[in-house]
Design a protein around this nucleic acid. Structure first.
Lengths: 341, 341
DNA sequence: GCCCCTAGTGTAAACGTTTACACTCGACCG
DNA sequence: CGGTCGAGTGTAAACGTTTACACTAGGGGC
């Protein structure tokens, strides 16, 4: 059956296309009897509106886009749940795009942002690689954007965002290690280009400094937030002359890799080395040993980001209030950290 | 700056809108000098085409949609890579939608499928909950669809698909367990509503039958492809009177949960019980013990599914050839399986 | 000098909707 | 009975593109 447009429905029902349109969008405005004829015609023809034309005409899509660094990262599962729940409540549908760990070119990102195919965007990806793209897109089209989990450099002008206080959380994690008696603690951090990563590193450094503890050369090593990166980083750390007694990883994915690396070297966790993660992904709890980590209120982040985006969409003028919403994190004590021996 | 349309560019450059359009889409058709003026005007106004209008007018979006059961499932990471790579080569962009583990209503799915917002669809989600929706959508609009990893019930008419031979793979996995000396093997399978799951279960049963081994009551227990489901299922299995010496899990996610459950009961893997997974997700290798499992050529699946979809899009008539493309799986031997003692 | 061709450009229709506005027809009010 | 009103419907414009077609000007062949 070929594509059927509103015209054919109108003809079959013996009414004008305006009436058909009204039947669909404002049924209360058409007489019951007419409505019956139209609905019958819709059924008979198998008509369904061309949403492309609708969105084009209406100038809005009722869709939002969420941009994330990679599909298949367990951390985002429940952030997405929060987003979807809020979106449903507000009548939006959600599409996702995957930046392939930010390997997209700035051009590609710009194209996406500008393309008007969605009413707004939630950025879960690291924003720094294309910060200026984002902002110019936003100002040109005044495209509603909010950032979740991450932040954008304030000097870029500020975008609304929802996230935990990464500095404070990392500090708390580090202090927990210190509190258990560790004086020699190393960190596996992410790419320096990500603000989130830099904040976590910052918190670590601050905590160490405040405790008067030195950070030896080579104790802050860059994983790339991946399993493989963390395994490499762990090997480096273990081969160093100054072996730490605890390792703080900037996310759980790397903590998993780190634990694996330690065990592969014939050592135990937390017996020989304690490991601390970040994010509390679902695998953290079922690892061996279960991972001590920082939990984020992921679903809440998603939900608030979506609601914030709605406000942004509904306002005519760009909202001046771009202050980040800070949500609480929580230290989850499990069994990957023990006192050094 | 307000939205700028092609008209304003035309006015500024002193040409007609047709020329501007040509400048963008067929630059070779406009005189160099004119092109210069137009490009300058585009730059000055900050114009970028309204893609909604473009797609509407052209009747194609150059976008495909991939539907998956949940973001955050590590299995899909590299399937997506394959899809994206192929898509890029073919000039398509990719958007993802998440069915929230198939909790979407049939209506919602139907709406998505029919909506004409994409040129085609790759279904990575379990198709069974909305099989008829899919097919009616496909026939109404002759919407190009291909299924990846999964299958659709053949009695529904058949859709092109790309996947491994799940029956054979599950059989091979089971035979490996049997070959190591296990006679008492149980299985944690997925929801019976998924064909993929049923195939894996079928392979298991066939292998056991062919080996002349009994499957005791309660040895085939339904996880729901999730960590939590597998932990519950494992508890059930361990509490039974007839304890198996090996457990075959329908995916790695459940195998991780299963190993956790066994350890939580104070037993060891593979000392007391061997565990076999399926999928070879990235965590399989870094688990303790590393998981023996079946690997799928995920990236290849993604790539082939995308290319197949392109063929489907390019053909005017629905392709009659809906035979599945079967790709090879591979048994990956690691250390979660040992001989029973 | 005439004709034809080509390159470059403009005009206008078309895509499928939504919606402002105009119109008709009864009902109701004074 | 004239006027007003409201409900229901139709007409047509508009959204931002692409593109078939028409037009112009200049060059080349005869």
């Amino acid at each position: 059956m070929a594509d059927v447009s509103i015209k054919e429905v109108a003809k079959l029902a013996g009414v004008s296309i305006a009436t058909v349109s009204r039947c669909i969008n404002n049924p209360e405005k058409v007489r019951e009897q007419t409505r019956g004829r139209v609905n019958a015609a819709i059924l008979e023809t198998g008509y369904s509106p061309n949403t492309l034309a609708q969105s084009f005409r209406r100038g809005r899509t009722n869709r939002v886009m969420v941009v994330l660094p990679t599909i298949g990262d367990p951390f985002f599962t429940s952030v997405m749940h929060g987003i979807q729940r809020a979106a449903k409540a507000k009548g939006y549908s959600v599409i996702i795009v995957d930046t392939q760990l930010n390997t997209m070119t700035a051009d590609e990102v710009g194209a996406m942002l500008v393309s008007k195919q969605t009413d707004g965007i939630i950025l879960l990806a690291s924003t720094s690689p294309f910060g200026t793209e984002i902002l110019s897109a936003r100002s040109r089209r005044r495209l509603p954007i909010v950032i979740g989990c991450e932040t954008i450099a304030p000097e870029l002008g500020g975008l609304p965002s929802v996230h935990i206080d990464n500095v404070a959380a990392a500090k708390e994690a580090t202090n927990y290690l210190i509190g258990r008696g560790h004086a020699r603690v190393a960190m596996i951090c992410g790419q320096k280009s990500s603000l989130l990563t830099r904040d976590r590193e910052l918190g670590f450094r601050e905590a160490m400094k405040e405790a008067g503890l030195p950070i030896e050369d080579g104790w802050v090593v860059e994983g790339d937030m991946s399993l493989a990166g963390a395994i490499r980083a762990t090997r480096t750390l273990l081969n160093g002359v100054n072996r730490p007694t605890a390792i703080f990883c900037a996310n759980d994915e790397m903590a998993i890799g780190c634990v694996h690396g330690i065990k592969a070297a014939g050592l135990t966790v937390p017996g020989d080395i304690s490991v601390m993660g970040f994010d509390d992904i679902r695998y953290a709890e079922v690892m061996d040993p279960p991972l001590t980590t920082i939990a984020q209120p992921t679903e809440e982040i998603g939900e608030r980001a979506m609601f914030r985006l709605c406000r942004e969409i509904e306002e005519r003028e760009p909202l001046s209030d771009a202050r980040p919403e800070i949500v609480p994190h929580k230290l989850i004590v499990r069994r990957s950290v023990a006192a050094p021996r």
